[in-house]
Design a protein around this nucleic acid. Structure first.
Length: 874
RNA sequence: GGGAGCAUAGCUCAGCUGGUUCAGAGCAUCUGCCUUACAAGCAGAGGGUCAGGGGUUCGAAUCCCUUUGCUCCCACCA
């Protein structure tokens, strides 16, 4: 095959992905083999691919492809998440653009629009993953809101309800006024915000005296139902026990209560109590039986309960009320103030604490086995540091608010009865049957299903089970075969949202962990360390990068820069490095491929020596890569292969076996080389699937294996021969030394040199032919005498001379040798000092001491050799 | 406020049980090469008080204490 001199991924990638799909190589069915399962963290159904997905899915694909090549029945289940808030917000925005208000639609009409949107955009993100080479079993693609998953969710809800874990009640929840729904605690992000601290004057009823109250939210005075001071506060001891104050502007009379909750140090020591709009105030309200006045509409505007500022947006109201208070002389002062404000994770608006009726899931019982599993490493976290984060959360777990005031999602299967009360059932029919137990006259039309839907995570927490339909059919062969899954690759940012809950669900409905290992990725940042975001415009489009550098180049960029749990500083230069590596592989193959093979040519000695060495290197690295992968050191494993291919294979091995210009290569050497190429491609395939397949298909080492995707992963043979590897380092040192001589003396590479040496056991005799070839020597001679006219160097203890015919600068040589001598004398002194320390000799392990003695002997020999050379020069 | 983690070459990071190869890799930089697979390349070189201080040890980048700086998570005094 004629190969272009640059690797061009465009056609190659699409060609092979199509081939893999056509051959159905990613599809898995249960069989006798050991399963290897990964479930994808489902991206939002209407989302777009970003760099985080690149990182996450590259890693998953590496793991899956490797397992597949190791002969396991690899199954990577893809899918998407219905992402109720995010998707509903997008659909609402899209309808708004078309001039349609959500409020003008019925639930059914809205859902029809939403499904239409989902059908149109839902497949995009998964399709994008194919561009990266993701070897998902696409036949298994799931959606958290498709029928089997929804049925599972409802079954789980009913099960939990019957177990008494789900309850309904009025609680203070995090309200998102933009999405107009409750959120779980995890969906609230606290950020430091610059606000103001307002000091308001509350007149004590029946007096001219005022109490000053500090607050950050003056608009909530509309909902004030008490004022609270600390009972130990001297400033307020004089007040009558039944004293009351007048709420500024509102004019309402409210009691003064006394509770040690109030901090004497903060503000004036007086606290306004607004039970409807502050979590702590709510607790005070409960404790003292205070009235609760909710002053906001669901969209964050002021309602008509008080009759002031009606319809005004909450932040607008704050500005207006500040002015009105000032004008009325009720504002003592205003100070700048920094505090933490909670924002909605999805819509970004400030959260409003709000009392409302919601569904909750009691978590204590669920948490117990899940906590244990991680702490005891039954589920292993990589890196382990996240165990702490996990434990802390699990041990302080709060009940989960699972209802959302949205339409896009799984509707809560609770049905209200006309005369109060409700029933919970998977279907309306079952609900009716249950209802009739209470009142036999009831008809279907009497039942009214709860309007709310479930939190998205209430379906994603079932993912490892639900993708195999293990909730509806707990004994089906698929779930029994694939569950528990092996590895989960995710970011630490969703430990609480998703990971912890999946573990809880796993134990609750399978009695077993959902996955054995969790690999945490970091966040992909730009090279300045900033988070990638649309606002900053520092987030490259992964598809553009793939188009520019190839999918393999992109994958290399991800692999080069990531270690578990650490953030990735992404730099486009890494993609370039990846592309260059593809090109390197390509050109190495081009070289091997272009040689003419001649069966009559005997195998050169240099080639025999090269093969003897490379066998050992390869074996050694296979072992190392395997070892690294076992420990999820994926980046290190790849880096080993990168260097193996680039330096050892291309830089040394290929140069050693390269036939002379326009000469053919012998059959034995080309066979060995192609075998190495095959092995290297297999080792690299999980990391760089496309370029390796392209080359492997051309090599066709095994006719009955149709793709490298299912070619067996090379395994290390017996332990590598360390001796051979160590001896070869002498060769590289000799060659490097001669190259340096050429450079210093400005000798052309073409000019053949002679190498003389004074023989000892550290001369790598068995690699003489390789040395000769790599250094372009015409002769290598063992000599007895030193040669003062030659360029000299020492490797380990062996003295080498390259005759220079008068080109030697004796002064310079002497200077160099003297500097070396000084270094080794200093080195020897430190070794001797160590060895003469009795405590060292007696306490250090034998091996360490022996090693020091060897260093001493080497240094002494080297010093002797250097002294001889210096003497000879003089 | 509570907890966790990090600090090693200009940059991004390895360094696993304290001891060969302990001060490394890649990138970047510099020098020399259009050598016949690859200039997306080749051959070389420079560059670090392992954040500061103290301790344990025969021996510390590695273990302990401490100071400083950064990051993340949790909590939320209005």
């Amino acid at each position: 095959m004629q190969l272009a001199d640059k690797y061009s991924p465009e056609q190659i990638e699409q060609k092979w992905y199509d081939f893999w799909m056509k051959e159905n190589l990613f599809h898995s069915e249960p069989d006798a083999r050991e399963p290897y399962t990964i479930v994808i963290p489902p991206p939002n159904v209407t989302g777009m691919l970003h760099m985080g997905h690149m990182l996450n899915n590259t890693l998953q694909d590496v793991l899956v492809r490797r397992a597949r090549m190791q002969g396991k029945n690899a199954c990577w289940v893809p899918g998407t998440d219905h992402a109720s808030i995010a998707t509903e917000a997008k659909v609402v925005a899209k309808l708004k653009e078309e001039g349609i208000e959500k409020s003008s639609l019925t639930r059914e009409e809205f859902l029809a629009h939403a499904w239409e949107w989902k059908e149109k955009h839902g497949g995009i993100i998964l399709n994008q993953l194919t561009k990266l080479g993701a070897s998902c079993d696409w036949e298994r693609t799931c959606f958290t809101m498709d029928e089997p998953r929804t049925a599972g969710v409802l079954k789980v809800f009913v099960d939990l309800y019957r177990k008494g874990r789900i309850y309904r009640g009025v609680r203070m929840v995090n309200w998102d006024p933009s999405a107009q729904t409750a959120l779980s605690d995890e969906e609230v992000i606290y950020k430091e915000s610059n606000g103001k601290l307002y000091y308001l004057r509350y007149q004590i009823e029946g007096t001219e005296e005022y109490i000053i109250v500090a607050t950050t939210r003056p608009e909530t005075i509309l909902g004030d139902t008490a004022l609270c001071v600390n009972p130990n506060d001297e400033r307020y001891k004089h007040l009558a026990t039944d004293a009351r104050v007048i709420v500024p502007l509102v004019g309402r009379s409210i009691p003064i209560i006394r509770d040690e909750y109030v901090d004497l140090e903060f503000g004036t020591g007086a606290l306004k109590v607004t039970p409807a709009h502050d979590v702590n105030d709510y607790m005070l309200g409960e404790k003292y039986g205070l009235e609760t006045i909710d002053i906001f509409n669901d969209n964050g505007t002021i309602n008509d309960k008080v009759g002031l500022y009606v319809g005004m947006e909450r932040f607008e109201c704050r500005r207006v009320i500040e002015k009105d208070l000032t004008d009325a002389g009720l504002m003592e002062k205003v100070e700048p103030y920094t505090n933490n404000v909670g924002y909605s994770e999805r819509t970004g608006v400030a959260i409003e604490p709000k009392l409302s009726m919601q569904w909750f899931l009691s978590m204590d019982e669920l948490a117990k086995p899940a906590t244990k599993a991680v702490l005891e490493d039954i589920i292993k976290f990589v890196p382990a540091k996240y165990k702490n984060t996990y434990r802390h959360w699990m041990e302080n777990i709060k009940d989960w608010c699972i209802s959302r005031q949205l339409w896009w999602g799984q509707r809560i299967p609770a049905y209200y009865l006309p005369k109060g009360g409700y029933v919970v059932a998977e279907t309306a029919e079952e609900a009716l049957a249950l209802a009739r137990e209470k009142d036999s006259s009831l008809q279907m039309s009497d039942l009214r299903q709860d309007e709310d839907v479930l939190d998205t995570w209430f379906s994603s927490w079932l993912w490892p089970i639900s993708v195999f339909d293990g909730l509806r059919y707990p004994n089906n062969p698929e779930i029994e075969y694939y569950y528990p899954t092996n590895d989960l690759v995710t970011g630490p940012d969703i430990i609480f949202f998703w990971l912890a809950r999946m573990i809880m669900a796993g134990y609750e409905w399978r009695g077993e962990m959902p996955f054995r290992n969790v690999y945490f990725t970091g966040i992909v940042r730009d090279k300045l360390g900033r988070k990638m975001s649309k606002q900053l415009g520092n987030s490259p489009d992964p598809l553009d990068l793939i188009a520019k550098y190839g999918a393999d180049g992109m994958r290399v960029a991800m692999l080069m820069s990531t270690s578990a749990g650490n953030d990735v500083m992404f730099d486009e230069a890494l993609c370039e490095q990846g592309r260059n590596f593809c090109n390197k592989i390509w050109n190495a193959y081009r070289l091997v491929n272009m040689w003419e093979v001649d069966n009559t040519t005997p195998q050169p000695e240099a080639a025999q020596q090269a093969i003897r060495w490379f066998d050992e290197v390869l074996n050694d690295r296979i072992e190392l890569v395997h070892h690294n992968m076992e420990q999820y050191r994926i980046s290190e494993a790849f880096t080993e292969l990168y260097r193996l291919f680039w330096d050892d294979f291309s830089g040394w091995y290929l140069e050693m076996i390269k036939p002379a210009y326009q000469s053919p290569i012998d059959a034995a050497t080309i066979a060995a080389t192609k075998h190495y190429f095959d092995t290297l491609m297999r080792l690299l395939h999980p990391f760089m699937p496309f370029v390796t397949e392209e080359i492997w298909q051309d090599l066709k080492p095994e006719a009955d294996i149709k793709s490298i995707v299912i070619a067996p992963m090379p395994v290390a043979k017996a332990k590598a021969n360390e001796e051979t590897l160590a001896r070869f380092t002498l060769v590289t040192e000799i060659v490097t030394a001669i190259r340096n001589i050429r450079r210093e003396k400005q000798l052309a590479q073409k000019e053949e040199l002679t190498l003389n040496y004074i023989a000892d056991e550290n001369y790598p005799q068995e690699f003489a032919a390789v040395i000769s070839k790599m250094a372009n020597l015409k002769a290598i001679n063992a000599v007895e005498e030193k040669d003062a006219t030659a360029a000299a160097f020492i490797v380990k203890t062996t003295q080498y001379f390259v005759p220079m015919e008068g080109k030697i600068d004796i002064e310079a040589e002497l200077k160099k040798l003297t500097a070396d001598l000084e270094y080794y004398e200093g080195f020897l002194a430190s070794v001797v000092k160590k060895l003469s320390n009795e405590r060292f000799v007696s306490s250090a392990p034998e091996k360490v001491v022996a090693n020091e003695r060897a260093k001493q002997a080497d240094a002494e020999a080297k010093i002797a050799a250097l002294k001889e050379q210096i003497a000879a020069l003089k």
